[in-house]
């Protein structure tokens, strides 16, 4: 933002009117709330860091075969010749060309982590997408229609949320055998309700908005109101929730693997690697420290990004809160909020 005329002193007249001209030309193509959020996100250093960590993991996942080819280390088969030392013991980080060392059967930990990233990100993202879509649809229907439909769906969501999900996952895995699709299915099944409940709450308040009433007075049907009026307002919260759900799903997947009911061995996943590392102590610290670290960095990355996205999408929660703290006042009503909006320069005259 350039300096205001007041800050720069007194500008010549021509310049002032030119600024006004530019202002109106620039904003003719409307800047959508999402565009504005992105612009805000770009100034957030923490978001950059978090996105960097996630991109690093994604690159690791994408180039896993390349890493494997470059090092000549297979992720599944023990590297019999070079993977262990002369006593048949695993190599530490840096030894024998193994950057992160090998596990106790001589497999390259770096390569396995890279392949594990594929599973983790795939499970994390895919199950979140499924859960978000399902949760949004069910949440909107429950919130919009209300009445007995809502009563039934809301109780269903409560039920899902109070399920002992690890137990169920173990039961399912023992019945159908552990697999990737089952893992995604189980995680999605236990995640949609969290989104559904929040979407339902949002819908309950959105449906009372005057613009919904306006649409109804124009003769718009229920479907149109749900899709055209309500859904666009849910995009932001669902994106935030989704971003925060991905790390939960990744941890969930790792937990299932660790318990042996996820994607079964020998597929390299972070959870499987941690399960394999069980029993190894401080001596073979690289068995468990690297998978743990990648897991931590990934989940932390998604969580921080989620927080930043939330702040970017809804800057008022953060900024007005800051302002509240400053002015030391309690609640406020509509007129106050409007005043604050104006103060914050959100409502720019065109």
């Amino acid at each position: 933002m350039s300096l205001t005329p007041l800050e720069t002193g007194l500008p010549p007249l021509e310049e002032a009117s030119e600024v006004a001209e530019l202002g109106s030309a620039r904003a003719i193509e409307g800047r959508s709330p999402l565009w504005l959020a992105l612009a805000r996100l770009r100034t957030d250093r923490m978001a950059f860091l978090a996105a960097g960590a996630i991109i690093l993991m994604a690159l690791l996942a994408i180039f896993a075969p390349l890493i494997s080819a470059a090092t000549g280390h297979d992720p599944l088969n023990p590297n019999l010749l070079t993977g262990t030392n002369s006593f048949g013991q695993p190599l530490g980080p840096g030894q024998g060309g193994y950057i992160l060392g090998t596990d106790n059967v001589g497999r390259d930990i770096l390569v396995r982590i890279a392949y594990g990233a594929r599973i983790s990100l795939l499970v994390g993202v895919l199950s979140t997408v499924i859960a978000s879509v399902a949760g949004t649809i069910i949440g909107v229907i429950a919130g919009y229609y209300g009445g007995w439909i809502d009563a039934v769906l809301a109780r269903l969501m409560d039920t899902v949320l109070s399920f002992p999900y690890v137990l169920l996952a173990i039961v399912l895995a023992s019945v159908y055998g552990p697999s990737l699709s089952l893992t995604i299915g189980v995680i999605a099944f236990f995640s949609w309700a969290a989104i559904g409940r929040i979407v339902r709450g949002q819908t309950l308040s959105l449906r009372e908005k005057e613009y919904v009433e306006a649409a109804r007075s124009l003769g718009a049907g229920n479907l149109r109101i749900m899709f055209v009026e309500i859904l666009p307002n849910l995009v932001a919260p669902v994106i935030v929730l989704g971003t925060l759900l991905v790390p939960t799903a990744i941890v969930f997947e790792a937990t299932l693997d660790y318990l042996g009911v996820g994607v079964g061995p020998p597929t390299p996943t972070w959870g499987n690697m941690l399960a394999d590392a069980q029993g190894s102590g401080f001596q073979d610290w690289w068995f468990w420290i690297f998978p743990s670290l990648t897991l931590l960095i990934t989940t932390l990355g998604f969580n921080l990004l989620g927080d930043s996205v939330r702040d970017a999408l809804d800057p008022r929660t953060e900024r007005i809160f800051a302002m509240r703290r400053k002015s030391g006042r309690g609640g406020a009503d509509g007129a106050d909020q409007e005043a604050e909006e104006r103060l914050l320069g959100e409502a720019q005259p065109g």
Binding site: T4, P5, L6, P11, R342, L343, G345, P349
Partner: peptide, 13 residues
């Protein structure tokens, strides 16, 4: 005509 100004970008003079 117009609207009250934003207090961040107050017109000159």
């Amino acid at each position: 005509v117009g609207n009250p100004p934003s207090l961040i970008r107050i017109p000159s003079g």
